[in-house]
């Protein structure tokens, strides 16, 4: 009896071990795409949180991964079709869950950045003033109430689409849009002071939203996704992820973002 129990335990442990420990299948070259987005990735410097996460992920996997830069909308399109294997810092929704798997590595809240001269003090104030335009990045989704605000304003023809953060900040400063939805890593290093001076931050009353490695379900089997997820979990467990975030944020914020 006890021998059989011990055997069963060993088998279970073995499976557990293999699921976590097995390196991914490197028999083909994988593809990974960044999108230009504040501290996550800056195309101008080819650096950022996502770049560091990707470098470490690729190093630990031992696989060859071709990295490129694309608009976020194109990334989701290619993840869905299976032409692209990975991207980073993705958030899930019911639609995306159909074609993408995720391996979470940080979590954060969303904020509405509004021009001071728009006179907006709260979220409903922005929604009620028909003259105010919101700028969003095409295909971006946010926390629940932020999504609701975007959808409502979209119906009222009050949303301007952009391909990245840079033009949104420019149009915000020029007064052609009056608000945009941001995350903690969205302030550009350049002109940060100028933006902070002319704007106010309003927090969306939603829980933090987990962000993670995006894996195409068409391109990667469930078992393969599990192997890549194990690498991300390993990076979180041994503190690597927190250290990457500490390069960009103060230790408290880095811990808050990566402990969820």
């Amino acid at each position: 009896m006890s021998t059989r129990l011990l055997f069963a335990l060993l088998v279970l442990l073995g499976q557990f071990g293999s699921a976590n420990g097995a390196t991914p299948d490197c028999s083909r070259t994988y593809t990974l795409a960044f999108h230009d987005h504040g501290l996550l990735y800056s195309a101008e410097t080819n650096a950022g949180i996502d770049k560091d996460v990707a470098d470490e992920l690729i190093r630990r996997s031992g696989c060859k991964v071709t990295v490129s830069l694309m608009p976020r909308a194109r990334i989701w399109q290619l993840i869905e079709s299976g032409a692209l294997d990975f991207s980073l810092s993705g958030i899930a929704n019911a639609e995306r869950d159909k074609f993408a798997g995720f391996a979470w590595y940080f979590s954060n809240k969303y904020y509405l950045l509004v021009r001071n001269d728009s006179g907006v003090r709260n979220l409903s104030g922005f929604e009620k003033n028909d003259a105010l335009q919101l700028g969003v990045i095409r295909s971006f989704r946010y926390s629940e109430s932020a999504n609701r605000l975007v959808d409502t304003l979209q119906n009222g023809n009050r949303v301007s689409q952009a391909g990245g953060l840079a033009p949104l900040y420019q149009t915000l400063m020029a007064g052609r849009i009056h608000g945009m939805i941001i995350e903690p890593f969205d302030f550009p290093a350049l002109e940060e002071k100028k933006i902070r001076e002319m704007s106010t931050i309003i927090e969306f009353n939603d829980p933090s939203v987990p962000h993670g490695l995006i894996m195409s379900k068409k391109a990667l089997s469930v078992a393969q996704q599990e192997q890549w997820r194990a690498i991300v979990n390993g990076m979180r467990a041994d503190g690597t992820m927190r250290r990457i975030f500490e390069k960009y944020f103060n230790p408290e914020l880095a811990t808050a973002l990566t402990n969820f």
């Binding site: 230009d36 608009p71 095409r138 689409q161 952009a162 391909g163 033009p167």
Partner: peptide
């Protein structure tokens, strides 16, 4: 209907 999109 009109719209501006800021492409990158």
């Amino acid at each position: 209907i009109s719209a501006n999109e800021y492409m990158v």
